[in-house]
Structure formats: C-alpha cells, structure tokens
Amino acid sequence: MIGEALTYVFLVIGTAFNTLGIIGLLRFPDVYTRMHATTKMTTFGTTFTALSVVVYAVAMFLGGNSVMFPSLALHTIIAALVLAFTNAIGSHALARGVHKSGCMPEPSVVDRLEGVLP
C-alpha cells in the first residue's frame, strides 16, 4: 500500500521535473540557459522516474512476487547512475564546444572566458 503511494509520488515528481525542463528548453533565450534547464531538470526527473521503478520492484519483491524484481531494481539503479554521469559530462562538452564555435551567451552580464581561449 505504502509502496504504491510512494511509487506514484516519485512518478509524479519525475514527470513534473521533466515537463519543467522541456518548458525551459522552449522558453529560455540562449543556448547556455537552455542547457541549464535540460541538463539539471531532465537528469533529476529521470532519476526520480528510475527511483519509482526501484520502489515498485522492492515492494513487489517484499510482497513475495516473482524473482525478476531484484534484478530489475539493480539494473534500474545502474541505468540512473550511468545517466547522471553521462549527462553531466556530455553537457559540459557541449557547452565547451558551443563556446568554442563562437556562440556567446546572449543576455549576459559578464563573460570571463571571452578572449581567454585561442
């Protein structure tokens, strides 16, 4: 019972943060701010989606169901970890590439990196 409620809570949190990330992608004015929205919020949302699956699998396993649920939970945890690492590194690489390609942050207060790179 409590497992079901927790699963729904985590699913709703995950989907809400994914939605906010996409709204930020559509709404923000330049590449870097869009990257803020997508990287942080979709990673967080997908982690919570994975967490809901883990909670569901643990609850099903404790309820005495089939044997596949522990491996489901383990694989989901590994998927979430892999996703968090690759998203962080990938967005850093993208930001660096975009800045090297000459696309400066458009509404910007200060840019200490300008002129430092060759």
Binding site: V31, T38, T43, T46
Partner: peptide, 14 residues
C-alpha cells in the same frame, strides 16, 4: 543555432 539542436537531441536521449 546548431548548439540548440544538439542540446535538444541530448534531451531527447535522456
């Protein structure tokens, strides 16, 4: 820009 498109594809992957 091309950077926007790359960010969008990254989001779709996630």
């Amino acid at each position: 820009t091309a950077g926007d498109r790359a960010v969008s594809v990254d989001t779709v992957n996630t």
